[in-house]
Design a protein around this nucleic acid. Structure first.
Lengths: 263, 263
DNA sequence: ATGTCTTTGTGAACGCGTGCACAAAGATTG
DNA sequence: CAATCTTTGTGCACGCGTTCACAAAGACAT
């Protein structure tokens, strides 16, 4: 179901599979919650349930990081939090710039989870001169002209693009030329980047379309079932077995306000 | 380039792989752009380049829909737009509710791409009584108390959750109980839903953490390379071969303003 | 009609990710 | 110290998705 798609076919980081890397933040979140409740240890079974994954998968994931568990007991929560944080590079500070301060950009700037885990909003950038100087989330918006200087002076390597689709590639090119090597793209466009630059995309429109597909399929099956079984009673089957969502592959929500691209 | 038509409607809709479904919106977007430029046909090679995927993969994807291409010519743009739209269920109207009208919820409500492709914002719902009646994106916000009635009266089957993490599961339960069977979750939490309900999650925090991982890895390799190769000249390799991002799997941005969950 | 050229559609091989099932490791109890 | 019980770590098999490579199909030229 979900997205979580890997981008590059190759580049098996350092032995850690891409699918595992995508799940580490999930484990980290569950572990942090346990840590706050002062739970000392967890079994793979418990943690897997909290993260919504298979316990065998979780154990295999952790095995790529090393043997941090104790048989018969489980995993030490604090220790695991540290190990995963370190593996994900969250023990260091990551200055991030957000380009395109429309509705979405502002929402991202205000997002609390940003600062909580090593990420720091170094600057907000927008092409509209009228926005310049106006504070958003306590940070004054700067004009696009300053982009290169901002990247350079703050040592920014991660950029978030929340511009309309039409401006995304251009912004991307400038970010990359200025030294950014990781981009999180919210604009509904396929970005072309040089080798060595990572791009992850988040596309609302795509997510909705995927849901619509399954919704349509469900409706079709329901109709078909209704025909074959004459008239069964309560067709509205309300919650029976609980199923957990699984990390799917890839994709997400999407662009900004005046999206140029249609779908 | 004439377009011989030998298409069979090929109702094979049942066996479409999930990975293919996730790419169809991508193709559709590229095709729509071509359509607006009045391009009559495209080859798999051209379209694949526009969508950022392998051409063989694209052809195989289309083969699941049926034989809509013409050998020696390519695919008829308009026809393909229609077929994919139909397959994705975009030829019908999908009323959607957005729950949690904070920064993110408002951004989503204002998002233009919503209406463009079969999706219609049926209602905005928020738990804050002060928000009730206030128009956002031209639509008056309604109180959570109305949730069940709204779902029922509008026949809503797709819900978007943009609440803080702490409220997400509760909102989800109410949506599902009211009849929603597809959920797009922006809150940083794992949602538990009954069987038959689809959940896709979009988590900004996770995306950033994945980028940080690769960024750290790149920094490490760079440092290692620097040691081995003494001092090579321009370490700042600026754009050489263009590599396209690929549809990954899963995941995305994230929650709302006052995110309760840490990471 | 025949031949050439382009592009599709797909058979087959390969690699990654998932989940089962179990042996090994360690804690715990007596 | 021995027996028992719990939980990890992983070998293995299976299935999905990707990619290559090519035969078949059709357009186009002569």
């Amino acid at each position: 179901m979900a997205t979580g798609r890997t981008h590059r076919p190759a580049t098996r980081s350092r032995g850690i599979p891409e699918a595992t890397v995508a799940r580490l933040p999930l484990y980290l979140r569950a572990l942090t919650a346990l840590s706050e409740r002062s739970v000392p240890t967890v079994s793979s079974e418990e943690l897997a349930a909290a993260a919504g994954v298979n316990s065998a998968k979780l154990r295999k994931d952790f095995s790529y990081l090393g043997s941090y568990g104790t048989r018969g007991v489980g995993y030490d929560v604090e220790y695991l939090v540290y190990q995963i944080s370190r593996e994900l590079g969250l023990t260091q500070d990551w200055p991030v710039v957000i380009v395109g301060i429309g509705n979405l950009g502002a929402a991202l700037a205000n997002y609390g989870g940003f600062a909580s885990r090593g990420f720091r909003v170094a600057a907000l950038i927008d092409a509209d001169p009228a926005m310049a100087g106006k504070p958003v989330a306590g940070i004054p918006v700067q004009h696009t002209d300053e982009l290169e200087a901002i990247i350079r002076d703050n040592g920014v390597s991660i950029g978030v693009i929340a511009t309309p689709a039409g401006a995304a590639q251009q912004v991307c090119d400038r970010l990359v030329a200025a030294g950014v090597t990781s981009i999180l793209n919210f604009a509904p466009t396929v970005l072309t980047v040089p080798d060595g630059v990572d791009v992850r995309k988040v596309d609302l429109s795509i997510e909705l379309q995927i849901l619509a597909f399954h919704e349509q399929r469900k409706a079709g099956e329901e109709a078909a079932a209704e025909v074959t079984t004459s008239q069964a009673a309560g067709t509205t089957n309300t919650a029976v077995a609980a199923k957990r969502e699984d990390s799917a592959t890839d994709q997400g929500p999407d662009g900004d306000v005046p999206a140029v691209m249609p779908a």
